[in-house]
Design a protein around this nucleic acid. Structure first.
Lengths: 119, 119
DNA sequence: TATATACATTCGCAATTACGAATATGCCAT
DNA sequence: ATGGCATATTCGTAATTGCGAATGTATATA
């Protein structure tokens, strides 16, 4: 079965393909944190955050630990952070090269001038 | 607009989140190649391959060049290959750590033993 | 001009995903 | 036991994605 690996890769990309899930992973860069604290930093409904955490759990991107009332999440494999950092370089190169891509892809108002490094 | 970058990142991951598109990118590692030659290496319908190429084009992951009858595709930014190579390390670590993940995620028959490096 | 070749696009339709509302579960305190 | 938190799950629905069949569009060749 030659394509099983590609299916797996695709499923990981799928798990990363939502802005809220990217945001969650960014939050987890700082280390373990409770689901409630994650929710505070996201502007989404509680159920929605929980659903996205569920996706990340299903793909073993995060792990969780129960402590009394709460559930603490953390990244399972820190190598993913390396990947995302390298990806950031790619993103910046692409954004600088063709300003307006965001608009093209997401039908937003196109910006003017180069994109800077700060997030 | 703080989340525009994350939307963009998510949209790139979205573009990478299909096994056929991963396969196309792998083929393009060897350099420029015609749409027809890509099709030969994929076990999908012509229209389907063209649709996947369209997605990769829309996200500026590939570029194309017309020459007479044919269309030649290539990767737009080779840094993406670096990202995918690093991702491969991540994939392998994850696959080795928990064999059976493929089965869990994709409801396939679980394999036995460690996954080896060869594709 | 007609026909073929290479590729892209459109059109249903089935499957998947995303979301909020509602509900459930488990743990703590009273 | 009862009620309150923290979190997860289920449900209905709207939106998006993936696919093959059919069709469209260039370009080349006869």
């Amino acid at each position: 079965m030659q394509s099983a690996l590609r299916k797996f890769k695709a499923s990981i990309f799928q798990a990363l393909s939502h802005p809220t899930r990217i945001a969650i992973i960014d939050i987890l860069r700082d280390g373990e944190i409770s689901a409630g604290a994650i929710l505070e930093r996201l502007e989404v409904e509680q159920a929605n955050a929980s659903q996205h955490l569920s996706v990340l759990r299903a793909h073993h991107i995060v792990i969780n630990r129960k402590e009394g009332n709460q559930v603490f999440y953390s990244l399972k494999n820190l190598r993913l952070v390396e990947v995302l950092d390298l990806m950031r370089v790619y993103f910046m190169e692409e954004l600088n090269e063709s300003v307006g891509m965001l608009a093209e892809i997401h039908q937003e108002t196109p910006g003017v001038g180069k994109v800077t490094q700060k997030e």
